[in-house]
Nucleic acid binder design. Sequence first.
DNA 1: CTGTTAGCGCTTTCAC
DNA 2: GTGAAAGCGCTAACAG
Lengths: 341, 341
Amino acid sequence: MDKNKKKASLKDVASYVGVSTSLVSFVLNGKGRLHRVSEETIAKIKKAAEKLNYQPNSFAKSLREGKSRVIGVVLSDISNPFFSMIARYLEDEAEKYGYSILFASSDENRDRAEKQIAHLVSRGADGIILVPCEKSEKTVEAVLETGKPLILIDRYFPTIRTNYVCLNNREVSRLATEHLLTHGFSHPGVIAYDTTLQHMQDRVNGYKQAMTEAGKAGLISESRVKEANLHNAISGSISRMLAEGVDSLLFATNNIATEALKVIKGKGIRIPEDLGIIGFDGGNAFELFHVPVSYIRQPISLLAQKAVEIIMDEILMGEKMTHQVEVQGSLVITESSIKSC
Amino acid sequence: MDKNKKKASLKDVASYVGVSTSLVSFVLNGKGRLHRVSEETIAKIKKAAEKLNYQPNSFAKSLREGKSRVIGVVLSDISNPFFSMIARYLEDEAEKYGYSILFASSDENRDRAEKQIAHLVSRGADGIILVPCEKSEKTVEAVLETGKPLILIDRYFPTIRTNYVCLNNREVSRLATEHLLTHGFSHPGVIAYDTTLQHMQDRVNGYKQAMTEAGKAGLISESRVKEANLHNAISGSISRMLAEGVDSLLFATNNIATEALKVIKGKGIRIPEDLGIIGFDGGNAFELFHVPVSYIRQPISLLAQKAVEIIMDEILMGEKMTHQVEVQGSLVITESSIKSC
DNA sequence: CTGTTAGCGCTTTCAC
DNA sequence: GTGAAAGCGCTAACAG
């Protein structure tokens, strides 16, 4: 009906009821009781607000209160399934606190990440959830200096004292490797991204630890690939490693695993006869591959939940402790990583 | 260094330079020339702003200007690959205009969508990009009444005059069906979601049109499945249709196609001997299936680009024409839809 | 119990 | 060329 002019303001409902704006403000913010506003006026104000379809102006509110009820999230690329799952859970978690999420993609590019963070901050984000990219320590430290609540997710920098939530990468990779070693494979290898990011080191180190513990330090076969031209890089790695006698592989990310499956399909490598494999994060591609692919499962919802919980603690209650949490991954095992022998 | 107190405000740089806030405002908004501010002061102000690391307060700005430079986007579920791709392109496109995107997921739930939209509007979104869910005409019309710029994406309501961008669903589905008919299949069927949403009707209608044009109206085999318990629904559909003599299938969405592949794998149906298939939107799962899967490709980046372009026209220049654009899909053909005979 | 008032930081009109 | 001042809509301290 009333598709009249502008939205109703606090003042509008105040004058409509015939009271001052403060009363309206109190009542509408649930502080009516606190300020001992009479039940009668409370009722009148509420009714009027309803009737005028009053919607508080969030800018005025934010300007006044100095907070926005928005969390900024910078991740690598929201179109990557792993991150889009994270995004979804972050959205749901934040909603529980009445917060919205402003997303931005960094494309693993340090400058871009910096720009995005600055942008989110200037948009008034009350806190930042960040998937940091390689060599972005400076950027992270800069945010820290700001005092703006920050939490890293999926990755962290051992040299920087920040909040973070990530997978128990080392341990779960160790377990995955151990699984291969105890299920018919004697020479596992690992393919990981060529990055200095700690989570990637952890995954590789977990593999190495398992190998060492099995007395096979001499058989450690590690290959690092770059994102650019991933397919060819992986193709080369796999050929080389097979030639070296590697009989099984741990792929350190979902992307690597998926691309590796394409290579494997192209080369006609038999799974698990020629090569046992374990990937990361699952997905339809793993399920639909002619041999279902074993993988390391991350509790993505838990990652998101913890991240929001921790940053909200800091935003809302000024919690100043540093929280560093590792969530537990698990192994989802299918035929691709079991050699019958 | 200066990890001092608060952020610098306009006033701070003004008093630092020794001029009024108006000048600073003019200069920093590039209107220095326009207001004939002396080159000298322009330089001084810019330097000071830099030095004090001045960042405009976006709330004050928005409050004053009545706009937020934020576009609200409500889609089904950002963790769905199709939508997360859209999200990414929307983000990139909006960035070109200096706009940010606030995402929200509706889960195909009308009430939730309504809430999300209201939330985004109350957050001051300058416009809304919406993937409308079933029977949400009222919601859409309500937004329209608001006068808030709105564009639907991926779907539309034939009964409502709105901006929208979507695929040429009918035509491309017709082509896909035609392709099956001319490549060794005589009895194609279609599996689509059980929804009244027009894009889904269009996809099915395209199929029907092709069948009719081929003089096979009598062989039309259509199956509708619900999202809940998708796997079983599809499993049942496929069994039934095969029994009816259907020798090929068009899957009307990526989800349906992916789930169908799982069914096909489970049942050991041979592709394309027993069944020719064409899916929607591609993806790794299609590529890695033992027979690469043909599919209808949507130009997702174009969808996003058009959507942002149109809504920005309306936001920035008050463009009042209704834009309804259909982007062209294309067929990506592999062995799954060609029967050698 | 209720009203007045002073800003939050910014843009912009109008005056000098 | 530059400055003063109003006011966007809201909250909250302070007065009654």
